[in-house]
Design a protein around this nucleic acid. Structure first.
Lengths: 218, 218
DNA sequence: TTCGGCATACCGGTTTACCGGTAGTTCGCG
DNA sequence: CGCGAACTACCGGTAAACCGGTATGCCGAA
């Protein structure tokens, strides 16, 4: 029986290339690709999916948020996070969202195949450099889950859009809420994190992995 | 006769995937991969290479600098820039460095094949979204080749302070100049780079290395 | 020497961010 | 049930950013 896999990444070229690579494995079946979180949620609502490989650094709904919503709809799906970065907080957040695997793009593609093999059996898999980072962090912080910020899902969503350079008005349109509400969210975020302007919010979002370092378009 | 191609990207997974994809083309021969500029220069000194696909956003020696040095050693090699973003300045700089092609990762992989086909014949190829960005820039700036988008030393200094979260007033104090002058600098920076708010300035400063993202030991 | 680039500085105006409140709804939990 | 958390929404006000323009002195290149 073949494994049905969905690839989610904002770079079409990376998706195509990864598809070409995974299709060399006879037991894998790439059933769909998604360029963003919204497309991904549509896809998993339409067809049978076993494993989702999802990029963390996607514009709009990011990979962590998408994972959260995806698993709320289909808890049986195994999620593997793909990322360019190995930030500690980043990994923790994704695992808390319910993902089973985490592999950085700097690793060899064999690591992804290994992750697929592990999560298929319900086991967790972290690629070497990530598991090392998490392990070293555990030595200093006994309870990573409860520590750090505690932004709500909505707040993370707003923060990401702020860090992408959108004004409150545009964010409000995007989320179908009032601009005043967006400003309340921003103020709550700033209060929780002890930050005082959008530059600091942007830096926090980038460093924490909520927003990728670079985004496309001009 | 097969085309000898080298792939340069800091993400091993992307290189492997791209190799799998390009190897489906019978006339292409992937002879080597490089994770950074130094490795790339070593490779082209050791074997026959026709085309190099190089990522712009590599740590250490970036793609533009690597292209410059590569073509100084082997001017006959055709270089195609691969990038996650379509920033105008990067396109201009890369073309000035001597590259013939520029394709963003957000584009389909067919765009890369098209670029390979074009540069093989010595022709320039820019993928649609990039050529659009360059064309729109041409309307406002008659001479892009002269790299008029280069920031002055003072502008870089101001940009760094902006990206650290300081207001114009504070920056003015720090530099012992008037706040109005700081604002002129900021506007000139934004005009040169095609950016429109401090969030975009912050992101630019971070990914261009003007302002570092402090990594807490990960 | 004329020209352009750079840094300096100010004017006026619009938009957005930032800060302080208040307050309604929903939803889950003890 | 009552309570708190989260999300929603508005009010008023100040500060800062953003967008035009104009202008001066300096310096190096054509």
């Amino acid at each position: 029986m073949k494994l049905n896999i969905v690839l989610a990444d904002d770079h079409q070229m990376f998706r195509h290339a990864l598809r070409a690579l995974l299709e060399k494995e006879p037991h894998l079946n790439i059933v769909a690709e998604a360029a963003d979180g919204e497309a991904l949620l549509r896809i998993i609502g339409e067809q049978a999916v076993d494993i989702v490989c999802i990029d963390i650094g996607m514009p709009g709904m990011n990979g962590i948020e998408a994972t959260r919503r995806l698993l709320a709809l289909r808890p049986e799906i195994r999620v593997i996070g793909l990322s360019a970065y190995s930030d500690r907080q980043f990994v923790i957040d994704l695992l808390n969202a319910g993902a089973l695997g985490y592999v950085t793009k700097a690793e060899a593609s064999e690591e992804l195949l290994r992750a697929i093999h592990h999560v298929q059996q319900g086991r967790t898999y972290l690629c070497p450099d990530v598991s090392g980072a998490v392990a070293s962090a555990l030595r200093f912080d006994t309870d990573l889950r409860a520590s750090s910020h505690t932004l709500t899902a909505r707040e993370r969503q707003v923060l990401q859009l702020i860090a992408e350079g959108h004004t409150s008005a545009r964010i409000a349109e995007r989320l179908h809420i009032a601009a005043s509400t967006v400003e309340v969210h921003r103020r709550n975020i700033m209060r929780k994190l002890g930050l005082h302007n959008v530059v600091e919010l942007t830096r926090y979002a980038i460093h924490s992995g909520i927003s990728p370092v670079v985004d496309d378009g001009a």
